[in-house]
Design a protein around this nucleic acid. Sequence first.
DNA 1: CGGGGGTTTGAGTGAGCTCAACTATCGTGG
DNA 2: CCACGATAGTTGAGCTCACTCAAACCCCCG
Lengths: 260, 260
Amino acid sequence: MEHGRVQGGFAAHVSRPSLLSPFVDRLARHSRLSPEAEHALLNLPANIRQVERGACLIADGQRASESRVVLSGFLYRQRLTGSGAREILSVHVPGEIVDLHNSFLNVADHNVEALTRATVAIVPRDALDRAATCYADVARSLLVETLVDGSILMEWLLNASRRSARQRLAHLLCELALRLEAAGLGERARYRIPMSQEELADCLGLTHVHINRLLRLFEGKGLIARDGRDLTIAAWEPLAEEGDFDPLYLHLGQAEAPGL
Amino acid sequence: MEHGRVQGGFAAHVSRPSLLSPFVDRLARHSRLSPEAEHALLNLPANIRQVERGACLIADGQRASESRVVLSGFLYRQRLTGSGAREILSVHVPGEIVDLHNSFLNVADHNVEALTRATVAIVPRDALDRAATCYADVARSLLVETLVDGSILMEWLLNASRRSARQRLAHLLCELALRLEAAGLGERARYRIPMSQEELADCLGLTHVHINRLLRLFEGKGLIARDGRDLTIAAWEPLAEEGDFDPLYLHLGQAEAPGL
DNA sequence: CGGGGGTTTGAGTGAGCTCAACTATCGTGG
DNA sequence: CCACGATAGTTGAGCTCACTCAAACCCCCG
């Protein structure tokens, strides 16, 4: 698989630089965009903000009047059970839009928080909605993004429900490798895990104690090597095997409809 | 919460009857549709088919050239792990469209099968795509449907990851109650569970043995009563409590943007 | 009346949890 | 420059929830 952001998808039309271009490039990877739609997206009003690690951008139950595009760093979605257990529902890399749920569905049903220090573009819901209402390609490309997001959610659900702790962790390490690589933030064989062992545990429905034991197990088997959070995947195939990992669900490799 | 399909959403414009009207009604519950968009949706080419319980409508890895609208009965999505364990990823009631994922993303990453005997309308992908490309409201309403679908997936992920078996089952029984009620297929206090205990287990990442024990436990506590698959929820509040259930994530109650 | 899917029950096991302590690392202020 | 506190990682010991395996039982349907 090639590096870089636009891999075989529909090339974005050249246009004056915009802070939102990583986002538009990402949309263009899966969807064709008419020049007008692309222009509308690039010129969406966007407020740039730096947020610190741990910052809560929107909380469960609030009404969201804006969506966020990740420009650098990582965001995540989370929900808490009544007894306070946390589940991280998804992790978002630069270029992704977060919070279509919360803004199009009127009331937030989960939190969005910063996994690391991050810069985000804040796009007012109304402007995004107007663009989606005026340009079918805008709505359609957001639909496709949301479908990819849903595919990843399904895989995470399968993981949590039916795979062992070992499989889950190996699977997540593989997924992060490919997604970070696709976002231009490392190579699949070597990257920095963007979170603590506690947060890994909350992605997987496990405890940080168990995550730790599993990481050491993988080290012992020679599958990975670690230096702090810097991870080297020493043996990709065996790790993918261990994690029952098949990257199809990430929909990274090809454009939406090559034959169309 | 009121019964019926159109609860406070945007009323569908009257139009000549179409087999797809339950689907369009459902879209109209969350999204406003221009008359042209509505007309395009109602007149989508649709092939009606009866399928038997257990029928596989599309399998993981295939290329999908069509989507399906449930007209009666129930469909579900499923994925298998490498070792053959099954996870049911979602259950679909009449009016819902299944397989936007598989058709807009070009290659199926999960199976769609029939939970019960069902009638489905088969809509060619190209026609749906054309409607979504021509009418922004079509793409936008599919986006909103997909967002709701994603919210349910997130809740299922939270369930599988962070709730006990008891909570998971109680939660699912409450969810089914409300979704069946909203689809006009029963009342929340009394409905027919549309699946076997084995299938319940596969929705929840549990075993059928354990599901059975939990059902009997709930009976013993007076939370539910059963006659075969006919379920009576004898005590809604305590069951919802037991399952840590808050229906917000279903987005049943209100239209997308009452204040807009 | 026989077969097969679904349900029910029992007994024993183990993966991952809990609780608890200790160590390492890193930023900060004295 | 070092002491300090806080956050993150590591390890041990014991426990429990849900699993596995196995066997009845039930009931519908052909």
